[in-house]
Each structure stands twice: as C-alpha cells, then as structure tokens.
C-alpha cells in the first residue's frame, strides 16, 4: 500500500473528509454557475450532487459513510426552516392588505401542484415510494423532506425531486407566463414561489425585488399549507 492510499484510508474514516468535500465542491459549483451567467442547468446543487455521486461511486464509498460527515450540514435544515418565518413576517403589511386573493391563490396553487403530480405520475405508472416522494416536490427541501418522511416516502428521493422542480420552475416559469400574457410582477413572483420554492424565489429576485418578496412569501406559506394538505390527500387517496 503506498502512502497516498494510506492517507486516503485514514481520512475516509473521518467525518471531516466528506464534510470538507461537500462544502468545497459546492463552493466550486457556485463559482461555475456565476461564470456561466447563472445558467439554470448548472444549478450549484445539481452540479454538486452529480460530482459527489460520481466520487462516491468511484471510491466505492457507501452513502451512510458519506452521510456520517455530511450530516452536520443537513442538520442545519431544521433551524433554517424555523428561520423562514423572518422573511415571511417582513411581508406582513402586504399579507394583511391582500390576504383574501393570496389565500385563494395559495390554496388553488398548492392543491394544483400536488394533485397534478399525483394524476400525471399515476397515469405514467409511478407507484408507492416513488409516487409518495414526488408529492411534496414544490415546497422548500427541509419541509418537503419532513412531509415525505411522514407519509412513507423517501426523504432523500424527495430532496432530489424538489431540487429538480426548482430548477425546472426557475427555467421555464417566467418565459411561460410571459407567453401567456401575464406581466404582473406580483403574480409572477407568487407563482414561482408556489411552484418552485427557493430556487424559483432566487429567480424571481433576479426579475425584480417586488416579484422576489412575493415569491419568498409564497414559498413560506406554501411550505406550511402543503405540510397540512399532503398527509390529508395521501389519506383520502388511500396511498
């Protein structure tokens, strides 16, 4: 065994290695995304996940060994979910003024996101864990993973669906609404927040601050509402 292999074997047993690689690779992916002019398909989460999966496969590292290190990052999702209350509260004045249109659009949008996935997925033959993990895909990851765990889906599979949904929504959302003649930044931002959570919100902020603020509001509200609706829908549908 040569020296480099010995160092690898030693490091691979420490949580530090995969923790450092996760942060480092994400940082590089972020630089790449900026260099490419925020090209949606080079989303830093997507690129980091792809690189890490290839690394794990190439080194024959099982996921639980990787997660021993990376769990320190994952743990922060809990406090980050609690923290979503802060941007939500900053929109309190608008929320008070437009509460009825917002409440109706939120309920309609939230149901549409879940039921359209259920209908299309079922029609295309998705069943069981695969279908259940898909249902909370439109809400921000920490909430979606919590919901998935609760309804018998796979939280890690849900995380992947959530990230892909965010990338799709951010890429097609605004052009699609423009083609259909919707130009109002408030409605556009809100739609991106309901349909594609934080990644859509980041895209809405690039469009305008007003769109971004409404998108953040929609993301927070939809997270809470979906957490209530999905378990009920699963129960009603007998899944």
């Amino acid at each position: 065994m040569n020296a480099i292999t010995q160092i690898w074997v030693y490091l691979a047993e420490q949580p530090l290695l995969w923790l450092t690689l996760t942060v480092g690779i994400f940082w590089l992916a972020q630089q790449l995304y900026r260099l490419a002019g925020d090209f949606p398909l080079l989303n830093p989460v997507l690129v980091s996940v792809a690189v890490l999966v290839v690394l794990l496969l190439a080194t024959g590292t099982p996921y639980h060994e990787y997660f021993d290190g990376a769990q320190f990052i994952s743990f922060l999702l809990g406090p980050a979910t609690v923290a979503l209350a802060v941007p939500l509260a900053s929109q309190a004045a608008t929320l008070k003024r437009l509460w009825l249109p917002i409440a109706i659009a939120l309920t309609v949008g939230s149901l549409t996101a879940v039921l359209s996935a259920l209908a299309i997925g079922t029609a295309l033959g998705l069943r069981g864990e695969m279908m259940l993990s898909m249902l909370p895909k439109s809400v921000t990851t920490p909430i979606a993973m919590g919901i998935s765990d609760q309804i018998g889906g796979s939280p890690s599979l849900t995380a992947v669906f959530v990230i892909l949904t965010g990338i799709v929504g951010a890429a097609i959302g605004i052009p699609l609404l423009r083609v259909l003649g919707l130009r109002d930044p408030v409605a556009k931002g809100f739609a991106l927040g309901v349909g594609s959570h934080g990644i859509g919100t980041a895209r809405a902020f690039e469009h305008s601050d007003r769109a971004g603020a409404f998108s953040g509001l929609a993301m927070g509200l939809n997270g809470a509402l979906t957490a209530i609706l999905v378990p009920i829908i699963v129960w009603l549908a007998g899944l």
Binding site: F26, L56, Y63, P155, S156, V160
Partner: peptide, 19 residues
C-alpha cells in the same frame, strides 16, 4: 442561514445514490 440555504440540500440530494 437563508442565503446559503442551497448548500444544506446537497447531502440529502446525494442520497439519490441509494435510489
């Protein structure tokens, strides 16, 4: 915390390897 939210999704996303 929220401006680095994206990083927190990575470890869970890597879980796709088990699926």
């Amino acid at each position: 915390l929220l401006s680095n939210l994206a990083l927190l999704f990575v470890p869970a996303g890597v879980g796709i390897i088990t699926h």
